[in-house]
Structure formats: structure tokens, C-alpha cells
Design a protein around this nucleic acid. Sequence first.
DNA 1: GCGCGTTGTCATGGT
DNA 2: CCACCATGACAACGC
Length: 586
Amino acid sequence: MMEIELPKMHPTQQDMDLIDILWRQDIDLGAGREVFDFSYRQKEVQLQRQKELEEEKRQQIRREQEKALLAQLQLDEETGEFVPRPTPTSNGLTQPNTAPAEITQNVAFTEGDVDAMSFDECMQLLAETFPLVEPAESAPPILDSSIPPCTDNTHLTMPGEIPMLIQNPLLPGPIDQTWMDLQHCLNFQEIMDISGYGNPAQLANVQDFNYSQYLPKLSDVTTGTGDMCPPEFMNTYNGTFSNVNHMRVKTPDINESFGPDEFCEIFYPDLEAKANTAPLPCEGGSTDGQLDELPNASLLKPMDLQSLSPGNFSTEKNEDMAEFPDSDSGLSIDASPKTSSPGKSMHGDCSVGFSDSDIDEMESSPGSMESDYPELFPLMFQSDSSQHLLPEKSGVTLVQEDNVTQPKKDQAEASGHSKAPFTKDKQKRRSEGRLSRDEERARALKIPFTVEMIINLPVDDFNEMMSKHQLNEPQLALVRDIRRRGKNKVAAQNCRKRKMENIMGLEYELDSLKEEKERLMKEKSKNRSNLKEMKQQLSSLYLEVFSMLKDEQGKPYSPTDYSLQQTTDGSVFLVPRIKKTLAKSN
DNA sequence: GCGCGTTGTCATGGT
DNA sequence: CCACCATGACAACGC
């Protein structure tokens, strides 16, 4: 429908299907945009009466022209439609009312190279245009099922001979208006979009396409609208048919056998059932795209990185030192500097072991270590970047050189240590305890840098800092491992944050897609109901037109024997259906 | 003691 | 080749 809002996000296939359907609906139903121009239609209505007067004068001339045109048509036995013949003939086709058996349906109308459309084709077109309702809507039983569906819905053209036929002045004004309404009904959904559903003023002000020139003569047209049309349609066409309401209904047979309801049931026997049960094409369909509207940006906004302020470490230093943790992660103090994996280098000759007594000793006098190595402190201020990283306690952890030569704890020792009874304080601050592990190791190896510096200094500064100190292999290995672990820890934190943000974004996206699906489902349901109503009104109008068509004997035309065909230029033809059966009998 | 979440760490692959 | 980053996997820890 016109009120469809284009998805803000990337259109999914489901969206595109629906849009395509609705787009075709607007185009294929055979009306130009000007049909819905209210002012244009008003102007046309005013001109209509003048044209009617002129039509009276031209009626006689048009009759003769009709004879000439019909003479150019020949019966196609396969489709029962008129086929333009190269050379005019003198048969009785010029009087279709008197010789209906000789009128045939034009097969060319149904094969795309002509623009005439029968009512059957209109219904086929509707069924094809709205696969949501029914993918392959069966033709009504009373219609010629052999008529192929019109495949070229948008570019129907008239053969060269047909324009001569449309000059036939056979239809009085009311029928003319009725046919305008019929075309209007074909575009009913567009009308509803423009003026709201069932706006009688709009519906009545349809433009004059001079249909009356192309319809067979209706010398005794009567109206049965009061019996045949739904109340809303009577309201819609009160103005249109005001000049013929006085006429007496003379087609009770049609009313009885082809009332609007019955007619609709014939044409759309399972419309409602299928509309309710037809699987939704979007069910389970992809819902790709449409994500632009998702405010993922805010959700995915990177969180602030965890503060790496060295002060955090300093505040816990005493506690951590008091409870020197296990070295399960191991010291990367391998004899070989190439070995960077602490777990694999645990058993190096440079490993440092810490006993509880050692821990207590370090805890007892942490500050004394700084005083023992005062010459190392200036290093902390070599670079600007390192200054802010300097903890208030300076983080310099130095131990006696002999500790370096002590056997390093291996993994088993570390695990055994971890299984030793922990104090409650340590259990509270696991992270700080883990973080202090590297500090303790650095202190054990007398690394003259803080862990924060080791981790956070840029590469150049870090290398410069390292170059200014002669560190042995265990110290270099430990520094490298501390830096590696520290950076990896931050990376892991960022990675986990991103993961959580992605999860949140996906959850939000899922909610948005669910809402979009629900909205589209409601829209589809509304479109289906609108289509159903449009078809019903079209059927009613079709029957109403038939009720007013009379032959020269005053007999009504039967919808079972005749069908109405309309061209894109508004020309309407009354074409008999019976030729198909005759052709089959042959 | 078990389950679950958090955190640190390692291994690995990519840049 | 090295440094760095990203990430899965694992283990320790805390609740």
C-alpha cells in the first residue's frame, strides 16, 4: 500500500517482496496516476455531460463505424475472442446483440500483443499481483478457464483495428460512468491510499474515459443497483447513477444467480480461507539488513578501559606482600633468553623460590628495599610517560642478589603453594594478588622498574629504559614476561568487553527485528483485507454493469456467456465466452 | 563440595 | 623477524 514505510534498515528479502507486490499492484491494475487526481476527475465529470450530448449526435455515425470494425474481426475458435482480420468481411458481427454466436473472443487479447483485458484476465491479474492471497487462484467456473493469464500486465496495447471499434457509440451515460467506476475499482487500493477507503465523493468523481463510445448499445438499460450492490457501493454510486435509478430492473435472473456474494464466491471461492491459512512468505525468511536503524553505536560504544593506575597496586602491596602468592603462572626466568614461556621455563637455573619466611621478611620491611637501592630510583623518571606511572611506593621491588641464584619454584611447587591455606585477605583481593605476583618476582630479581612501567611504556621508551640498565638474563626474561602478561591482560579485558558488547548489540538487534517482523505482519494482514474488499467490490460492480446491458430485444447479457474486456485506453468490449465451448466441441 | 562468574594467563594466529 | 593485538582455552579464585 501507499502508506508502507520503507524500512529504515536495509530491506530484507521479505521487505522487498512485499514492496514489489505493492508496487505491482499500483501499476498493473491498468489505471494511470491521473485517475486519482481529484481536481482532474472533477473537471472530467463536468465535461461528461457535454460529451453525452455530443454522443447523441454521433451515435448514428458510430453505429456505422462499429459495423465496419466488427466486420474486421473474426472468431478465434480457440479462445472465443475476436481476432482482427486483415480484410473486412460482411458477416453479421457488426450486430453483436443480434448474433452473439458469431462473436468470438479475440485470442490476441490474451497473448500480450494486444491491450484488451477481459474480466477473467483482470481477475487473473489480481491473483497474480497478490500472491500473498493465493499463488495460483483458480479461474471461476463460469469463466473460460482456457484464457491464459495476462502476463504483460503493464503494457497492453491495442491492435491497429481495435481503435476503430472503440468509436462505436453504444452506451449511454450511466453505463459510461459505471465503467469508469469499474476501472476505478481496479485501482481501489490506490484510491483508498489517497482519499481513504470508501470515500464516495472520490469514487464518484472518476474521470470520463469515453467508455460509452465503445460499449454495445443499451437501448433498454435498467439498473438493479439497489438489489445487486452492497450498501456502501450504493452510497458510492448514488451520484453516478442518479439519472438511471428510476429505471426498472429487468434482470432478475442475473440477480438471483450472480449476486455479488455468489459472484465473489465464484471468482474467489477460497480467498478468505487461503488468506487466513496461506503461509507467510516472510515466515522464517531472512531478515538480513535493516540494521541501520539500530542504535548499535551507543551500545557498542567502547567502555572505558580499566584504569591501570599504579596506585591500585601500591595500595595493596603490603597485603600482597604479606601473603606472597603462589607462582603458578611461573617465572619466565629461563636460562635461555629466547624462552618466553614462563610455564616452560619454570625449572630454569635462575628460578627464585620464596618461602613464607621470605615473604614475611619482605613484608616486614618493604620500604627498606628502596633505601637499599637508592641509585635505581632516578630511572623511574627518565621519561615523561613513566612519571605518571610511578606509584607512590615506587613499585621498585628489589631483593638480595643471592635470591636470584635460588632455585626457582617449578609449577608443582607453585600449585602446591596455591593449595596452601590462604588468608581471608588474599581471597578477597585475588586480582591484586595476581597482579602483585609479577611485582614480587620483579622485586626478587631486583628489577629496577615498576611493573606498570614495564607494561605501559611505549616500545621505544621501554627499550631505552632497558638499555640503560645492565640486566642479566633472568631479569630480562622476567621483564619481557611481565610486559607480555600485562599487555595480554589488558587485551583480554578489552576482548571480553567487546564480546559482551557484541552480545548486547545482537540482543538489541534481535529485538528490533522482532518488532519489524510484527509490524510487517500487521501490514500484510491489512493489505490482504484491503485486497479482498477490493475484489468484492469489483465483482459487484462487474455484475452491476452486466445487469444494465441489454441486447436489442431487451434481454440482459449473461455473465456466463459474455465477458467484458477493457483496454488500457479505457475502451471496453462485450465479448461472448461461448466460443470456447464451441471450439472444444469441434 | 559444587556451580557460576570473573580474572589472569598461555597459545596461537593475524597485522 | 619482531612487536603488538585478538581471541579461544584453561585454571585459579571468589561468591
